[in-house]
Design a protein around this nucleic acid. Sequence first.
DNA 1: TTTGATACATCATAATTCTATGTATATTCG
DNA 2: CGAATATACATAGAATTATGATGTATCAAA
Lengths: 112, 112
Amino acid sequence: MYSKELLKGTLTAIILKLLADHEKMYGYEISQHVKELTGGKIHLKDGSLYPALQKMTADGLLSYKEEYIGKRVRKYYFLTKKGQKEKIAYLEELRDFIGTLNKIVFPQLKSI
Amino acid sequence: MYSKELLKGTLTAIILKLLADHEKMYGYEISQHVKELTGGKIHLKDGSLYPALQKMTADGLLSYKEEYIGKRVRKYYFLTKKGQKEKIAYLEELRDFIGTLNKIVFPQLKSI
DNA sequence: TTTGATACATCATAATTCTATGTATATTCG
DNA sequence: CGAATATACATAGAATTATGATGTATCAAA
């Protein structure tokens, strides 16, 4: 696990990217997927993920529909039109930022 | 400029890296250097930089000595032994994090 | 002489994630 | 069957950290 502050500002981009690739996912699924993808290095906590999904929904980036698996509810989130558009800007900013960081901190490496 | 949250957690690593390369720098110099290096994309604000330097000093990563240029004081910061050691871990963590992020968000690129 | 650059500082605010806690259902294993 | 674990959501308070606003003061250049 990384020092917690590093993740700041990247969570929205990560969620946007996953939903862009998967069409619909529920919260628990997202957290499991991220854990797998990163070999356990990024572990989204409940207290981070669910409020983030709610905020993104309030901001109009996401929408969801509930499905019942037996008696248990799942909220399947998906990108809205707005989310699809803003995803591009979010990821572009993140990519640019990562490139900039690399230039400062690891100048011996080729920038991505 | 990036959305401010992106910078979180990276400022300490950036400062450690610059001081590792330059032996001693003062605050204003650091902010100018970062601005130049990044083509203005990262602009450390006074209200971010000076408290960060103070905190890192309190944490034992940095030390400084004052020099007078005319009547104006400059605080030249430099890495302590502890700072030199921890710099390695900080940068390694950052590098690993960037690599992990890339794998999630830009899987089509080769990881760095 | 006045503007902008240099050089430091602090405080209240904002934004975001985490910890802790809670509720409840489903599955697996001894 | 019963207990432990996994699934699935949620919220509230705490912690962290960068920012904006503001302040002080010196120096160089126009």
